[in-house]
Amino acid sequence: MDIVSDVISVVRVGTPGGERVEWRAPWRQDFPDQPGTAGLLVVLHGTCWLIENAAEPTHLAPGDVVFSPHGDGYALADSAATTAAGNEPATASPTTVTLCGGYELSPEWTHPLLRELPGTIHIPARPGHHAGLRAAVEVLGAEVDSRRLGAAALLPVALDMLLLYVLRVWFEAHPRGETATGWAAALAAPDISAALNAMHDDPAHPWTVQELADRARLSRATFSRRFGSLTGQPPLTYLTWWRMTMAARLLREPSSSLDAVAARVGYTSTFAFANAFKRHFRLAPGKYRHQAQARVRPAAIAPATAE
Rank of each mutant, 00 (worst) to 15 (best):
54 A>T: 13
56 E>F: 08
57 P>M: 01
57 P>N: 06
58 T>C: 07
60 L>H: 00
60 L>Y: 02
63 G>D: 02
63 G>L: 01
63 G>F: 03
64 D>A: 07
65 V>E: 03
66 V>N: 02
67 F>I: 03
67 F>P: 01
67 F>M: 07
67 F>N: 04
68 S>T: 14
69 P>E: 12
76 L>F: 08
78 D>F: 08
78 D>N: 15
79 S>T: 15
79 S>Q: 04
81 A>L: 13
81 A>F: 10
82 T>G: 01
82 T>L: 09
83 T>K: 10
84 A>P: 00
84 A>H: 10
85 A>T: 14
86 G>Y: 04
87 N>H: 06
87 N>L: 03
89 P>E: 04
91 T>N: 08
92 A>F: 14
92 A>Y: 12
92 A>M: 13
94 P>N: 13
94 P>W: 14
97 V>S: 06
99 L>T: 04
100 C>S: 08
101 G>L: 00
104 E>S: 15
104 E>V: 06
105 L>C: 12
106 S>F: 05
106 S>C: 14
110 T>V: 14
111 H>V: 06
111 H>W: 10
111 H>K: 07
111 H>R: 03
117 L>A: 07
118 P>R: 05
118 P>W: 09
120 T>Q: 12
120 T>H: 14
123 I>Y: 02
125 A>G: 12
125 A>P: 10
126 R>L: 11
129 H>E: 15
130 H>N: 14
132 G>E: 11
132 G>P: 08
134 R>P: 04
135 A>C: 09
136 A>M: 01
136 A>R: 06
137 V>Q: 03
137 V>Y: 02
139 V>Y: 03
139 V>C: 10
140 L>C: 02
141 G>D: 05
143 E>W: 07
144 V>M: 05
144 V>L: 03
144 V>H: 04
144 V>S: 00
145 D>K: 03
145 D>L: 11
145 D>W: 06
